[in-house]
Simulated scan of single mutants.
Amino acid sequence: MQSDTPRQALVTAVIDIFVSTIGFIPRDKVNEHTRFLTDFNIIDDDLTVFVLEVQKAFPLNAPREEWQVIETIGQIVDLIIRCREHPEDYPPQPPSRLKRTLASLKQKLSGT
């Protein structure tokens, strides 16, 4: 069983990225269970920048299918942990795949 300390450090880091990227959400209103698509009125451009910042901070090669099901800060942390623990399962993505992933997240946000 993994220690809560490294996981909590990741949660804190992702929350810090979320709060600094979005800009209008107080830090004390965000936790591991925050559903960034539904808990706050976030525009898709802000969500895109948040995802890009997470990917810059934690090099993630997760496929679009995994990003499509993410709704909470905790799920992003789980994805980071999976990518770190099993890098062989997450080969580098071509740039076009990242663009499709971001487009998919925007589509999910807009509800279409």
Results as ranks from 00 to 15, higher is better:
M1S: 15
M1I: 14
Q2E: 15
Q2R: 15
D4G: 12
T5M: 10
T5Q: 10
P6L: 05
P6T: 08
P6K: 11
R7G: 02
Q8D: 07
Q8M: 10
A9N: 08
L10C: 14
T12M: 08
A13W: 04
A13M: 00
I15Q: 09
I15M: 12
I17A: 10
I17G: 08
I17W: 04
I17L: 12
S20G: 13
S20T: 15
S20I: 11
T21E: 01
G23T: 03
F24S: 14
I25Y: 08
I25G: 03
P26S: 09
R27L: 12
D28C: 12
V30Q: 13
E32R: 11
T34E: 09
R35P: 07
R35E: 11
R35Y: 11
F36T: 10
F36N: 00
L37P: 11
T38P: 02
T38S: 12
D39P: 06
F40M: 03
F40L: 00
N41G: 00
I42L: 07
I43V: 02
D44Y: 00
D45R: 10
D45L: 05
D45A: 05
L47C: 03
T48S: 00
T48Y: 05
V49K: 14
F50T: 15
F50H: 14
V51K: 08
E53Q: 11
E53Y: 03
E53L: 07
V54E: 04
Q55K: 06
F58H: 11
P59S: 01
P59T: 04
L60D: 02
L60S: 09
N61W: 05
A62Q: 03
A62F: 02
R64D: 02
E66H: 06
W67V: 09
Q68S: 11
V69P: 07
T72D: 10
T72C: 12
I73D: 12
I73L: 14
Q75S: 07
Q75M: 02
I76M: 07
I76W: 06
I76K: 00
V77F: 10
D78Y: 05
I81T: 06
R82Y: 04
C83L: 01
R84G: 07
R84M: 04
E85S: 01
P87C: 02
E88S: 02
E88F: 08
E88M: 00
E88Q: 07
Q93M: 13
Q93N: 10
P94R: 15
S96N: 13
R97A: 15
K99A: 00
K99S: 11
K99N: 10
K99Q: 12
K99R: 08
K99D: 13
R100N: 14
R100H: 15
R100Y: 14
L102E: 09
A103V: 12
A103M: 12
L105F: 03
L105N: 06
K106W: 00
K108G: 02
K108Q: 06
L109Y: 08
S110M: 14
S110D: 08
G111K: 04
G111F: 02
T112C: 12
T112L: 14
